[in-house]
């Protein structure tokens, strides 16, 4: 476990070793503001809640989380440090977990820095703070889902650019899986049962209740399973790609 915490700390610090972390934070905070106040019509709604804020999270994560995830393994592969890392006394799953947790913690910090929004809404009215807290948790969980996909794509290539683009595409697919745009594309050749399964895998559908502040156990299980599945897949991909 000592090694996990050491790797976690290294990975977390690595985000701040380059301007990436600061650029990400500034863009994330700016965009949440823009989306909430202009596109979300925060004031016009006349309600003391943060639904306008949370509603855009899937779309923000769609482009910003891949930028966080892309370096995770691609960089290790490119510089050859993956050979160093995996010959240290740390198991594959520990390494995968440590890297994931470091990136996830960074996203948690970005999310936590949106606290002025919470203060604002409390200043303007009397929101249900329990619901807002639940929505924050749910949003972080969903970010974890996007991140796990990104980690897996990063493990599959040594190019960060390719990792980024492929992650955005895969994440876009999962975001909209329950919507006609994706479903129609598969309707022609997928049996109805599989189509329903596909529809149930959409991030947006599972975020629907969360953004209103309802943290349903099924949605929690869904995102947790999503994270578990993609991290497991990452470990397999890294193992397969070692020899390249």
């Amino acid at each position: 476990m000592n090694a996990v915490s050491a790797l976690f700390r290294r990975e977390f610090a690595a985000y701040f070793a380059t301007p990436l972390a600061y650029i990400f934070l500034v863009i994330f905070l700016m965009l949440t503001g823009v989306f909430t106040f202009y596109l979300g019509g925060f004031y016009e709604r006349g309600q003391a809640d943060l639904e306008a804020f949370f509603a855009f999270h899937p779309w923000l994560y769609l482009f910003l989380v891949p930028a966080i995830a892309m370096r995770a393994w691609a960089e290790e592969r490119k510089s050859g440090t993956v050979e160093l890392l995996l010959t240290l006394p740390i198991s594959m799953w520990q390494a995968v977990l440590a890297k994931f947790l470091a990136a996830w913690s960074f996203i948690a910090i970005a999310l936590a820095l949106t606290f002025p929004m919470w203060i604002t809404v409390n200043y303007l009215g009397a929101p249900d703070n329990g619901a807002i807290f639940a929505a924050y948790l749910g949003s972080l969980l969903m970010a974890g889902g996007y991140l796990a996909i990104g980690m897996c794509m990063s493990a599959a290539t040594s190019s960060q650019v390719i990792a980024f683009i492929v992650t955005v595409v895969v994440c876009f697919f999962f975001t909209l899986a329950g919507y006609p745009l994706v479903l129609e594309a598969f309707r022609a050749w997928l049996p109805e049962a599989l189509l329903e399964l596909l529809a149930s895998l959409g991030f947006l559908a599972h975020f629907e209740a969360i953004r209103k502040g309802v943290l349903d156990l099924r949605d929690v299980v869904y995102f947790a399973a999503m994270i578990g599945f993609w991290l497991y897949a990452s470990a397999i991909v890294i193992d397969l790609k070692k020899a390249d």
Binding site: A6, R9, R10, A14, G80, T81, E83, L84, L88, P89
Partner: peptide, 27 residues
Amino acid sequence: GYLPEGAPAYGDMHVDRFLEFMADMRG
């Protein structure tokens, strides 16, 4: 102890931090 071909190391780290990190990884 293993020195891989090309002596890869984390380029974004300072030498002392890198060695401290490796020491932690080694317990």
